[in-house]
Lab assay of single mutants.
Amino acid sequence: HNLTITQGKLFFHYNPKLCLSEIHKMEEVSGTKGRQERNDIALKTNGDQASCENELLKFSYIRTSFDKILLRWEPYWPPDFRDLLGFMLFYKEAPYQNVTEFDGQDACGSNSWTVVDIDPPLRSNDPKSQNHPGWLMRGLKPWTQYAIFVKTLVTFSDERRTYGAKSDIIYVQTDATNPSVPLDPISVSNSSSQIILKWKPPSDPNGNITHYLVFWERQAEDSELFELDYCLKGLKLPSRTWSPPFESEDSQKHNQSEYEDSAGECCSCPKTDSQILKELEESSFRKTFEDYLHNVVFVPRKTSSGTGAEDPRPSRKRRSLGDVGNVTVAVPTVAAFPNTSSTSVPTSPEEHRPFEKVVNKESLVISGLRHFTGYRIELQACNQDTPEERCSVAAYVSARTMPEAKADDIVGPVTHEIFENNVVHLMWQEPKEPNGLIVLYEVSYRRYGDEELHLCVSRKHFALERGCRLRGLSPGNYSVRIRATSLAGNGSWTEPTYFYVTDYLDVPSNIA
């Protein structure tokens, strides 16, 4: 807008934040220059609390790290170098490059900038070799853009010569660093050979998330399962459950009422301010606690030095998902009996873990797994792929695949051998790939016309006998059925096997 004052003059007093240069501009645009008398524009009460600059400061050096910015700028000295009290560095987070010096300023003089007072450097006698002032900004957020400017702080001049310097606002972004852990990993099994893994992005990506790394490792069953005799009275049979499938998407929606109208769909109840505040506090606490764990609990591995020492970490090797089922080394339970199943799973520490690289999504279907087997899954978020990966501390989750139908069934015939004193040795093959492992066998036998009897055969007993022995049988026709019990439950009964026990007292003698 054009402003013209045809008559009258300007009068400025007691404006401590208004620089004289701005008042002189007002004289020019209003056409009143030359009308004012000496005392109409006070030299001592206008701009006496402001830094009124008329020179431009330029930054000469900028260096960044993930949490620091090192700045240096060209030296500046007023005509009387004693008038320079120091520099004021202003900075704040700036997602967009549209910041002005006066953003967030209120009537009390406060604003949204963080201000650092910096002492002037030592003055050199040689004007050509003056030290460049600077400042190291610490405690910054990774991968965050900051708006920065600097200006001088000078003393009051009796001659009211307006001098000083100020830089333009520059924008500097800190470097990326390792992201925080992925949030809320959930693993479920939808079949006997697959596990579905879902997660949420890290709360602090500290860069642009480029991919996720998912490692999985087959877990050995508890050692007590191999040692305890679950045929003993009072000892509860062990059981394991597989990871249940995901709930429906509708039930997972946030901010939804727990109660549904019987007449149909209901609208979600909005969260109160107290609920939102509580969630923010919980989120802040979780982030602080995660940072504490990362800094205190997890110790970084030592990389190899120039002395030739090897990095103890196993090298990563990509495998196809079809090879995942046989990740671990199978060892027989008892070496003397080769027909026992290889369900003991000690994992070799030198073995390469299978892994998958996930790009542009937060889910993965891990296939080719062994049925009813526990897996430990390790999830890392990465925001750099080359020249070397920059990934987060791992988040861990466990899951067990679903049982395989008929995996616990005894394959092959049940054979028998009759000894003296009416002892019958029953023999059968253990299931080759049971659900988890076989903890015991149930032997059901009966003599024709009598009630059915049951015998429990422990895992250890089966390994020693290759089956079991029935003792003290009365003469007669017998039928026997056997079924295995694994961590997933009972298998199917075998087809009945028949044998006849004679009275050993009636056996004919070869003595003449």
Rank of each mutant, 00 (worst) to 15 (best):
G207R: 02
I209R: 14
H211S: 04
H211W: 12
Y212T: 14
V214H: 00
E217F: 11
R218E: 10
A220P: 13
E221V: 07
D222M: 07
D222I: 12
L225K: 04
F226Q: 06
L232D: 15
G234Q: 08
G234I: 13
G234A: 06
L235P: 06
P238G: 13
R240N: 14
R240M: 13
R240P: 15
R240C: 14
T241S: 05
P244G: 13
P245E: 07
E247Q: 14
H254S: 14
N255R: 12
N255Y: 07
Q256C: 08
S257W: 13
S257L: 09
S257P: 13
Y259M: 05
E265I: 05
P270Y: 05
K271H: 05
T272W: 05
D273I: 13
Q275A: 12
I276P: 05
I276G: 08
L277R: 12
L277Y: 03
F285Q: 09
R286Q: 05
F289Y: 07
D291T: 06
D291R: 07
L293Q: 11
V297W: 11
F298V: 07
R301P: 10
K302W: 15
T303W: 12
T307N: 12
D311T: 14
S315M: 12
S315L: 11
L321N: 13
L321K: 15
G322S: 08
G322E: 10
D323L: 07
D323F: 13
V324G: 14
G325A: 10
N326A: 12
V327P: 10
V331R: 12
T333D: 09
F337D: 08
T340I: 10
S341R: 07
V345L: 13
V345P: 15
T347A: 12
S348T: 04
P349Y: 13
P349L: 07
E351T: 14
R353S: 13
R353D: 15
F355N: 13
E356V: 12
K357P: 12
K357T: 07
V358S: 12
N360G: 06
V365L: 14
I366R: 02
I366P: 00
S367H: 05
L369M: 10
T373R: 04
Y375W: 01
I377S: 03
E378K: 09
L379Q: 01
A381F: 01
A381Y: 04
N383G: 05
N383W: 03
N383R: 03
N383D: 04
P387G: 08
E388I: 05
R390H: 04
S392E: 11
A394Q: 11
A394R: 06
S398K: 06
S398I: 09
S398G: 03
A399M: 13
T401V: 06
K406E: 14
I410Q: 04
V414W: 02
E417T: 11
I418P: 07
F419Q: 13
F419V: 06
E420D: 10
H425L: 07
Q429L: 10
Q429K: 11
E430R: 04
K432E: 13
P434I: 05
N435G: 01
N435K: 00
G436L: 10
L437D: 14
L437V: 11
L437R: 14
I438E: 01
L440S: 09
L440C: 14
E442Q: 06
V443P: 01
Y445C: 05
D450S: 14
L453T: 09
L455T: 11
C456R: 03
V457E: 02
S458T: 12
R459H: 15
H461S: 10
F462N: 07
F462K: 05
R466I: 08
R466A: 05
G467Y: 03
C468N: 02
L470M: 08
G472T: 06
S474K: 09
S474V: 10
S474W: 10
P475D: 03
P475V: 09
V480H: 00
R481V: 09
I482Q: 02
R483L: 03
R483F: 02
A484I: 04
T485G: 01
L487W: 11
G489P: 02
G489V: 08
P496S: 12
P496F: 07
P496A: 15
T497G: 12
Y498A: 13
F499T: 02
Y500A: 12
V501M: 05
L505R: 05
D506G: 11
I511F: 11
